[in-house]
Simulated scan of single mutants.
Amino acid sequence: MSLIRIKDATDPATWGPAIDEAVHAISRGDLVVFPTDTVYGIAADAFTPSAVQALLDAKGRGRQMPPPVLMPDARTLDGLATDVPDSARALAEAFWPGGLTLIVRAQPSLAWDLGETYGTVALRVPDHPVALALLRRTGPLAVSSANRTGRAAGRTVEEAYTQLGASVPIFLDGGEIPGGVASTIVDATGDVLRIVRPGAISLEALRAVAPVEDVAPDGAAPDDNAPDDTAPNDAAPNDAAPDVARPVPGDLDR
């Protein structure tokens, strides 16, 4: 394995050049792999459709499984979403950064193409220093788990490289990710908040902040972000959306 494209990002005192290279790669429309609080993720500029398509191609998945979007902080929420319920804002304030993904209505004026989202977007603020250092420089990124569809998500940069090395120019090595539990996905686009995939944040913890209904009986959780979420395998048979109008992202969020 060539290590030329794997950049050390384990120490904030020395990771500056590695973050710089990753920022430049994103600005060129290239892909970057980096650690999140759950698993390694593969990222593209959310506002460059060709880069998002390259991400989907690298994973071997179609537009019907759009990636979630990771943000540097909760203040970005209103720039990307509209009609966000107060109850969803309360969850964001309580659990971001961390293992909560919110499906919300996307701002209709945004010039992006994440796939077949039906006017929604899945948003999360990850709780990992490398991820946040990168996102503060790039702004929102479309992120999915760093693995080929149907294979286990990488918990080390070497595992991610083995699967995606041919399609990604820059890998940020943040060490092994303890992770292993995907983010909890809450749909905030309907009349009530509803879990569509259980994960890192329990229903009890959510209900201590806002009224949230349990998983829809016909629905179940896809592995939305193998990089940051639940199961290490993002090709679960229920990757399909529980509701055609409000699809669950196919994988990143972990």
Rank of each mutant, 00 (worst) to 15 (best):
V69F: 09
L114I: 09
P129K: 01
R137M: 01
V130T: 15
L114F: 14
V130H: 09
V39P: 00
L132P: 00
P85E: 03
T120K: 06
I19N: 00
M71D: 05
D37V: 10
L134R: 09
W96F: 03
A142Q: 01
I103R: 15
G99D: 09
R105Q: 15
L134H: 08
P129S: 07
A81M: 06
P108G: 08
K59C: 01
L80R: 03
P108M: 10
L102M: 09
V23E: 14
D83H: 12
F34Y: 15
A90R: 14
T36D: 09
V69A: 13
L134Q: 09
S144N: 04
P67L: 15
V69Q: 06
T38K: 12
A58H: 04
D20S: 01
V84R: 02
L31D: 03
T48D: 14
T38R: 14
G79D: 12
G139W: 01
A90N: 07
A106E: 13
A51T: 06
T36V: 11
R105G: 13
R136E: 15
D57R: 11
P108Q: 03
P49Q: 00
L77S: 03
T138P: 13
L110Y: 12
A88K: 08
P129N: 08
A90K: 15
L135N: 12
D73A: 12
G115C: 03
M71V: 13
T117H: 12
G62K: 05
V23L: 04
Y118Q: 15
T117I: 09
D37L: 07
P67Y: 02
R148Y: 01
L80W: 08
G139F: 00
D86A: 07
P129T: 01
Q107M: 05
I103F: 14
I103W: 14
A146F: 02
L80I: 07
A90H: 08
L123T: 04
P35G: 07
S87G: 03
S27D: 10
G16Q: 08
L31P: 11
V69H: 07
L114Y: 05
A43Y: 01
G99C: 05
I103E: 15
D113C: 05
V23D: 06
L77W: 01
A94C: 04
A81I: 06
T117V: 15
A18S: 15
F47V: 12
D37G: 02
M65I: 08
L100D: 05
Q107G: 08
Y118R: 14
Q64G: 03
R148M: 11
T48K: 07
A44Q: 10
A22C: 11
L132A: 05
V143R: 05
A106K: 10
Y118N: 14
F47D: 14
T82A: 15
R148Q: 12
Y40C: 10
G119Y: 00
V33N: 02
G29F: 00
A51K: 02
D83F: 08
D86P: 00
S27G: 11
